[in-house]
Amino acid sequence: MIREGAGFRELPPAAIVPEPGTSLKNKTGSWRIFRPVVDREKCSKCRICWLLCPEGCKIELEDCFETDLDYCKGCGICAQECPYKAIEMVLEEGSSIA
């Protein structure tokens, strides 16, 4: 991994990422402001959220679909599209909106 704060001489050329699989180390879930919270009673496992999640973050469980919070950026598409209104977007702790 590239050191945070590295100078231009230290960085690899042309902004390349010289090793594979670095997306596993970069937990983009940290960008999230709102977190999807599923109501397990209302979820019918229709898979709409799984189909539409742009990050592929929906994980199938026995009784419902949950979210991989390491990579969910909190876009809210799942909550918007859920036909059963089973997903609520909840403000993350420490986040605020003006």
Binding site: A6, G7, F8, L11, P12, P13, A14, A15, I16, V17, P18, E19, P20, T22
Partner: peptide, 26 residues
């Protein structure tokens, strides 16, 4: 460095404001 399936690298990445200037200087 080159694109080679047996030795994968990523090219054409994002340079956010923390990084872009350094690559311009390169």
């Amino acid at each position: 460095y080159r694109l080679d399936p047996s030795n994968p690298i990523a090219m054409g990445t994002v340079g956010d404001p923390r990084w872009y200037m350094e690559f311009a200087k390169q």
